[in-house]
């Protein structure tokens, strides 16, 4: 029972981190219908920013979240301007846009691999190896902190989307681009900013990832499918769905890892993606692409 509770808590903490990892992905999809396969590599970019800040000036990864977010957001805006802006206007050709993001992921992967090589890295702040005990339940601080920080960021994002004018404009644009334009929303600007926010979220997630997982540039291929399974379960384009999907799958995969075999825990994500395909043949996404 105690072991079960412990795995459950760890799964939930990790689930929030996963939710943060996919929140940007689902936001970008909602507004622009771009399935951004480059999102995981952007998370790794964020992780590298935190890693070097930690190594060079000893900055705590949690404190480096804003910097990682800003750096990755800037990178994202550049990518958007160079590659996606002309495609974002026309929502057709979405398959080609997916391949464009795929190409972008390869480009960034290539650069990172070339510069830093594919060695496993992780930041090790003082709490990375610590843990607290609640009764007999043992909770590693790294997971606890990252889960808490993630949930704070996600709540902040949700509040922003729910109550601010710009947030409502983002949601309106994702529902109907033309209608939004007709009430005076500068849709191109909204797209740019949403992409930037999405990438900032990736960067923030990267800072947390840097001390709870070990990371290396090519790892993002594995994350692509994992992250897709999370958003697809909850319905792509919806933040609430992404959080629920992330927590459910994270808990299930932690359970599989703890009680069956760690080797099979990632399989949970991929299999769930396939199961959803079988159950919901209309498409993986809550919002239809066209």
């Amino acid at each position: 029972m105690i072991e079960f509770l412990q795995v459950l808590i760890l799964g939930i903490c990790l689930g929030f981190v996963y939710a943060l990892m996919v929140s940007g992905l689902t936001l970008i999809f909602g507004v622009m219908r771009i399935v951004n396969l480059a999102h995981p590599i952007l998370i790794i970019c964020g992780a590298f920013v935190s890693y070097w800040l930690f190594i060079l000036i000893g900055l705590d990864p949690i404190l480096s979240i804003p910097i990682a977010g800003l750096v990755v957001a800037a990178l994202g805006v550049v990518i958007y301007k160079l590659i996606f802006e002309r495609n974002a206007a026309q929502q057709t050709y979405s398959e080609m846009t997916v391949l464009l993001t795929f190409g972008t992921a390869m480009v960034i992967d290539g650069i990172l691999s070339f510069v830093f090589h594919n060695t496993q890295r992780t930041t090790s702040p003082s709490y990375a190896t610590d843990a607290i005990f609640i009764g007999d339940i043992f909770i590693p601080l790294a997971q606890l902190y990252s889960g808490l920080v993630s949930s704070v960021i996600i709540v902040g994002l949700a509040v922003f989307l729910k109550y601010s004018d710009f947030g409502i404009a983002i949601r309106a644009t994702s529902q109907n681009r033309t209608s939004a334009e007709l009430v005076g929303v500068n849709v191109k600007f909204v797209c740019l900013i949403s992409f930037g926010i999405g990438c900032a979220l990736a960067g923030a997630a990267g800072a947390l990832v840097s001390f709870i997982f070990s990371f290396f540039p090519s790892r993002h291929w594995e994350w692509i499918a994992i992250m897709m399974s999370l958003v697809v379960l909850g319905g792509m384009g919806s933040l609430k769905g992404a959080v629920i999907g992330a927590i459910v799958l994270s808990v299930v995969s932690s359970m599989v890892g703890a009680f069956i075999s760690p080797a099979w825990s990632t399989m949970v994500f991929f299999l769930s993606l396939f199961l959803i395909l079988i159950i919901r043949p209309k498409g993986l996404f809550g919002i239809q692409s066209d």
């Binding site: 004018d165 409502i168 033309t178 007709l182 009430v183 005076g184």
Partner: peptide
């Protein structure tokens, strides 16, 4: 639109998944 020409297209120009209050806020955006 901001200059003062409002266009109501054929398809109902509301945001179906937003609340009425949010729709009104969008109108006044």
């Amino acid at each position: 639109m901001r200059l003062g020409i409002c266009f109501l297209p054929q398809e109902r120009a509301i945001f179906p998944n937003l609340t009425v209050a949010e729709n009104l806020r969008m109108c006044a955006y």
